[in-house]
Amino acid sequence: MYLDDIKKKTVHHKFENQYDEILFFKYTKPKFVSKLIYYNQIYKIETRRPYGGKRVLRKYLLKELNKLKCFFDDQLEFYKYYRTGSTYLDHKYFVRNKHDIKFNLSN
């Protein structure tokens, strides 16, 4: 509901400058989207939880944990960039319509 409102407002919104756009997409939007992703992932894991004993459950949860690890391994460069507070690539990561396929392939 709120994410739909945010998306509708930002799709056609003209930011005053690139700095404001970067601030929004780097800090504001992730506060909402990260919670959606987190709770959606928990929901998927829990609703697919197999019936069975501890061994079956442990195997399933380890498999899910491995999927998450693979995702973070694939996104490691961006994750490090974001978590270290870097800014030198903000214009590539957090500005709309600046998609560079070569940039994404190299990461």
Rank of each mutant, 00 (worst) to 15 (best):
N17L: 06
F71H: 14
V56W: 09
E46I: 12
Y38D: 08
L68V: 09
Y93K: 00
D100R: 07
D4S: 08
N107R: 11
K59P: 04
Y43R: 12
K54V: 09
K102L: 07
L3T: 12
R48I: 04
E21F: 00
N66D: 09
L105D: 08
K44T: 10
F32H: 12
I45V: 13
K7T: 06
Y39A: 06
Y27Q: 12
R49E: 15
H99I: 13
I45W: 02
Y38G: 03
K67T: 12
D5Q: 06
M1V: 12
L89Y: 09
L36V: 08
Y60S: 09
E21L: 06
H13V: 01
Q75G: 05
K9I: 02
N40P: 01
L57Q: 15
E64T: 07
L61D: 09
D74N: 10
K98Q: 14
L61R: 10
G85P: 03
D74Y: 10
F94N: 00
L62T: 13
R48G: 13
V33E: 04
L23P: 00
V33D: 06
I6K: 00
K9C: 03
K44F: 10
D90Y: 02
Y39L: 13
G53V: 14
D73Y: 11
R48D: 14
K102P: 02
K26E: 01
H99Q: 11
K9M: 02
R83S: 12
R96W: 03
F15D: 00
L57T: 15
G53S: 14
G53E: 15
K31R: 15
I37Q: 10
E46S: 11
F78I: 03
E77F: 05
S106F: 09
S34E: 11
I45F: 04
Q18S: 11
N97F: 03
K8N: 15
D100V: 06
F25A: 03
N17E: 05
V33R: 12
K98A: 08
K59V: 07
V95I: 13
S106I: 14
I45C: 07
N104Q: 07
F15I: 01
Y43D: 14
F72E: 06
N17P: 00
K8E: 10
H12E: 11
Q41S: 08
K92E: 04
L105N: 09
T28S: 05
K63L: 09
E16W: 01
M1Y: 10
K67E: 13
Q18Y: 02
S34G: 13
H91V: 04
I42P: 05
L105S: 09
T28P: 00
E16G: 10
H13D: 07
N104H: 03
F25P: 03
C70S: 11
K35M: 05
N17D: 15
G52S: 08
P30Q: 07
E16D: 15
M1T: 14
H91T: 07
H12K: 14
E21V: 00
K14D: 08
T87K: 10
K26I: 02
K29N: 04
K69T: 07
F71C: 11
Y88L: 02
Y93S: 01
K67P: 01
F24H: 02
T47G: 01
L65M: 14
L23W: 00
H13M: 11
L62W: 06
K98T: 11
I101W: 04
L61N: 06
K59E: 15
R49M: 15
Y27K: 12
E46M: 15
R48W: 02
